[in-house]
Computed example of a mutant assay.
Amino acid sequence: MPAPFSTLDDFRKLLAEAPKADQGVLDAAAERNGQLTKPPGALGRLEEMAIWYAGWRGTARPEIAAPQVIVFAGNHGVTAQGVSAFPAEVTEQMVLNFQHGGAAINQLSRAAGAKLSVHALELDRPTADFTQSPAMSEAEVIAALATGWDAVAENTDLLVVGEMGIGNTTAAAAIAAALFGGAAEDWVGRGTGVDDAGLATKARVVAEGLAVNPAREGLEVLRCLGGRELAAMAGAIARARSLSIPVILDGFICCAAAAALEAAEGGALDHALAGHVSAETGHVRLLEKLGKAPMLSLGLRLGEASGGALAINILKSAIACHSGMATFAEAGVADG
């Protein structure tokens, strides 16, 4: 079935009507957790994550059997401003590398037992330079949201989305600044490794983009300052919510795309955990704004869904303990 929206207002309505976690299952999972053969709270955040996951999957004793990783790729007109250490051609070259199994995300997805798919979005037609005009028209952002929506397999039980797109840390910084305020310098980072002059250029470009595009509503910010791959990630995250599929968020760019959903509809990311905090300057601040505590902190700054994919096995371990451990009664162990 095609995505059930043709306008941003349609999409907003879907966000507003999205399902919530099952409170009865959350209560049952918490009760089970309290009966497992361990001291209360001994598994720390693993216990919280397992209960959270159970509530979204509708069973107090869940399992993760079909995780999916999706990487979306797009090109940005703003790269003409010199915001990246690499040319835009690298986006397409990396897509080929993903398709041939040679990238980090291929290895990390395999290690996590996750199915990986890659979607390139009109790489021969970059978005508009957002220092001159909105990055996308409504039709263009709807098409990208729909690509993400349609990419989620209905049998998925855990979703991670990531991106590839030269220039997209600049787009992510602009989105974060538009949604949460602060100076452009607060949000820009070195991305693929720009020098100090490049960092100053990114800050200037973000400030210009904010001035040219005054919209501050979540989905309008995504349209005006984002890119096709960011919109596709947002579409996939929203689709997962419609199917009660939990999501692990990747790095700064993924979280910026997700933040547009949260800004459009409070609670839109209740089904999402932060997989990691990256080395990109604005990511710590962005996670704080979203109220998401990262599962991992490993100094990653690759993108590609790499940090989110790494976190799959952490959540799998949480679920394995929650669903596989014996209760005190089952094990014949005195619980005090």
Rank of each mutant, 00 (worst) to 15 (best):
E280L: 07
E229T: 08
L286S: 01
A274K: 00
L230M: 15
A257L: 00
L286M: 12
K292Q: 13
A240K: 03
A264V: 09
I245A: 01
A259R: 03
G227K: 13
H283S: 09
A272T: 02
V277K: 02
A272V: 05
G227L: 04
C224T: 14
E280P: 01
L286K: 00
S242Q: 15
L287D: 00
A236Q: 02
C224W: 10
L296I: 10
S297R: 13
A238K: 10
G227W: 09
S242D: 10
S242A: 12
K292R: 13
A240W: 06
D250M: 03
G266H: 14
E229S: 12
L273G: 01
S244I: 10
A256P: 12
A258F: 12
K289M: 09
L290N: 10
L269W: 08
G235H: 09
V284E: 14
H271S: 11
A231Q: 11
A234P: 09
E288Q: 14
L269G: 07
L230F: 04
G282Q: 05
A238M: 11
A259S: 15
G291I: 13
E265K: 15
A256R: 05
S242M: 15
S278C: 08
L261E: 11
H271L: 10
S278L: 05
C254K: 00
R241S: 09
I248F: 06
P294N: 01
H276K: 07
A256H: 08
M295S: 02
A279Y: 00
A293E: 14
G282S: 11
A264I: 04
L230W: 11
L287W: 01
I253S: 08
R239H: 14
G235Y: 00
L298E: 02
G235K: 05
S278H: 06
R223N: 13
A258P: 14
I248S: 07
A258Y: 01
G266N: 14
A264K: 06
I245W: 05
G275Y: 08
F252R: 00
A268C: 04
A274N: 06
G291F: 06
A238H: 09
I237P: 06
I253T: 02
R285D: 04
G235Q: 08
A240H: 04
V277H: 00
G227F: 06
I253N: 08
A238Y: 06
H283Y: 09
P246H: 05
G251A: 00
A272F: 08
C254Y: 04
F252C: 00
L298W: 07
A231S: 14
G235C: 15
A264S: 15
T281K: 12
G235I: 02
E288V: 00
V247Y: 04
R223V: 13
A234V: 06
L230E: 04
L298P: 07
S297K: 10
G251D: 13
H271F: 04
K289R: 15
A258L: 01
A240F: 09
A264F: 06
K292S: 06
